[in-house]
Write a protein that binds this DNA or RNA. Structure first.
Lengths: 179, 179
DNA sequence: CACGATGATGTTACCGAGTCACATCGCTTA
DNA sequence: TAAGCGATGTGACTCGGTAACATCATCGTG
């Protein structure tokens, strides 16, 4: 993943072949790359399966009387807490690379949707009807990505958990004031 | 597009080559296909550039005192009205094909995000700040896709404009009751 | 009517993503 | 020491996608 990020930054995503990435990552071959990543894009997004699990568990573990938004807040806390400080600069390098390429943006959007769907399913598991479940999940996802961009962009700034909490508050307030 | 939809339905997306699609669509060659569609997936999503334009124009044309949600409602009206009744069965055949394939789902999600971003940008053009703009746009997009699935799934049911309006009302109510 | 322009299509060749069957290497364990 | 096993490599293949160049029909104009 580091090898890929370096090469994409230097040459751009399109101009980098999978064989190059594998070679830079310790003289490996294309074949080995595909044993670890489903496709070329996935090298920048691997490990997000864990995020799915995190939010699902956190929502399931929320106390019974918690409202949907409270359960989502708990999920965001768990998710934000899983990003240790040393990953901040990786995030900072990742975002512009993704922004610069259509295929990567598409995958990023898909991952975001998958996170939202995971939260929706977990809320429905708690008995929340589909519509409010998906709305609460989308608000939470929106807040998280907002906070993540802020976190990655400000070295030495507040930790992600704090930014996430703050962003979720702002999103809730803005949603309420829409009428 | 009809040729592709037929083949995808019969054999599945993966098992269908671009050459097959082109051949079925009047004995054409692979090369001709790519002159009309940016890639294989796009054959099922072409024309959505027009949707972007529709919502952008509708939001720009909304009366000055309109709230963000009112402007979005106008956009949904224009968008829903652009789907004539004879396209309903195409929609009905499209949705299961997309649902059956990961690449197609990914593209569908990207198109949905693009629509939402177009609405967000149009709202910001009216002076709406970024956060409420994107939230209003997401609520509208959510309502539209909900209504579209309903419309495609119920032959002979109410027209899309009506379902869209209703769905938007339900989404607004659900969002308000989240707290 | 002939001519040149134009647009749509085809041909060929090429690159890179992604897959598969099979071989190899190194380390562990009985 | 030999069997086993996991990680990796090789070579060949398909298909998506691109580019250069050729062909052909149509059509407006002199």
């Amino acid at each position: 993943m580091r090898a890929a990020l370096d090469l994409f930054t230097e040459q751009g995503y399109d101009a980098t072949t999978v064989s190059e990435i594998a070679a830079r990552a310790g003289g490996l071959s294309k074949m080995t790359f595909f044993r670890y990543f489903a496709d070329k894009r996935e090298v920048l997004f691997a490990g997000q399966e864990a995020h799915r699990q995190l939010v699902t568990d956190a929502i399931a573990a929320a106390p019974a009387p918690a409202t949907p938004l409270e359960a989502v807040a708990a999920a965001l806390g768990a998710l934000g807490g899983s990003f240790t400080e040393d990953r901040r600069d990786i995030g900072a390098r990742l975002l512009p690379v993704i922004a610069a390429n259509g295929e990567l943006r598409e995958r990023a959007v898909a991952k975001r949707a998958a996170l939202s769907e995971a939260m929706t399913a977990a809320l429905e598991q708690r008995g929340v009807p589909g519509l409010p479940a998906s709305l609460a999940a989308e608000l939470g996802t929106h807040a998280f990505y907002r906070a993540f961009a802020q976190w990655a962009g400000a070295a030495g700034g507040p930790p992600l958990t704090e930014l996430t909490q703050r962003a979720f508050g702002e999103v809730r307030a803005a949603a309420a004031s829409l009428g």
